[in-house]
Computed example of a mutant assay.
Amino acid sequence: MADLSAFPITSRWPAQFPDRIQLYSLPTPNGVKVSIMLEELGLPYEPHLIDIGANESWTPEYLSLNPNGKIPAIIDPDGPGGKPLPLFESGAILLYLAEKTGKLIPADLAARYETIQWVFFQMGAIGPMFGQLGFFHKFAGREIADKRPLERYRDESKRLLGVLEGRLDGRKWIMGDAYTIADISMLGWVRNLVGFYEAAELVDFASLKNVPAWLERGLARPAVQRGITIPSRV
């Protein structure tokens, strides 16, 4: 049985199954990337709910795993060389799990890097821009009298959706016929934009054809349906 006692986070969120991947997360767009990935791969894992509303990601135990204080993070008890591997940043975790299993990422080197570039596109553009739009449209940003920030993030979010729309023209998934970590990285964010953030009308989502169809296909996958609810908020 794996010994995870060297990781302070396990004192606050004990591992009942230390031989499984330990997932510390919340079902946010970034969090569900990893739970969806784990469900798609069928890897055994143990989820731990990190209540960011209660600032649990800023506790010393959590910061010992991720000094940036964000979710998700994992500990893989069977990391490289058979040693436990702690890892944070959702994009890095997707890449690690894909490399570990040889799944959901192309074996061909050129296609592999093409896939990775779309994951980076999500990390550097889709996530930050959609998140800012959500803040200024639905949350505390609504109280700001100056509407230029909202307009900036609205326009950039619409542009990014246009990039996705073009990429998906004639393709079932971001990489064509193959469903990959590129799709997993973006599904939760697009779902959140038009759902939780209530920004579909704001970004003229109904004018798109390829992105809504892609989102529907993705959300129909059983692993995605499971992953978007893990860890349970109950």
Rank of each mutant, 00 (worst) to 15 (best):
G227L: 09
R171F: 13
I126H: 02
P29T: 08
F121W: 11
S11R: 15
P27H: 05
Y24T: 00
Y113T: 05
G218P: 06
D51L: 03
S232F: 12
V119P: 06
M37I: 02
R191Q: 15
K83A: 14
F139M: 13
E61Q: 14
I116T: 10
K138W: 00
I71F: 05
L133G: 00
Q16A: 15
M123A: 14
H137W: 04
F88G: 01
K209I: 13
E143K: 14
E99Q: 12
T59Y: 06
G102R: 09
I36N: 05
G141C: 00
H48M: 13
I126F: 07
G82H: 09
D155S: 15
L215G: 01
P47Y: 08
K33N: 04
L193K: 11
S207C: 03
A213N: 12
I144D: 01
S90W: 07
P149S: 13
P72M: 09
P29Y: 09
K158I: 15
S57Y: 00
T115E: 06
M175D: 11
I50M: 01
D76M: 10
P18W: 06
I126P: 02
A6R: 14
G227I: 07
K147A: 13
G195Q: 11
I71E: 07
R112Y: 11
D78Y: 03
T115N: 15
E198I: 03
G131E: 06
R148V: 10
L41S: 01
Y24H: 05
R152W: 01
P149Y: 10
G188H: 14
Y179D: 05
W13K: 10
I93V: 14
R171L: 08
H137E: 06
P8A: 12
E39V: 04
V194E: 04
R159D: 10
R221T: 13
I93K: 08
V234F: 12
K158N: 02
S185H: 06
A6I: 15
R154K: 15
I181V: 14
L150T: 02
Y179G: 04
P77H: 11
I71D: 01
G166T: 12
L23D: 06
K33S: 03
A213P: 07
R112S: 08
F130L: 08
F139L: 14
V163A: 11
I174K: 13
K147Y: 07
P44W: 08
A110C: 10
A54N: 12
L164I: 06
L87C: 08
I52N: 00
L85G: 09
R12Y: 01
L23E: 02
G170H: 07
V32M: 15
V211F: 07
R152M: 04
L193E: 12
P80N: 14
D78T: 09
P212M: 11
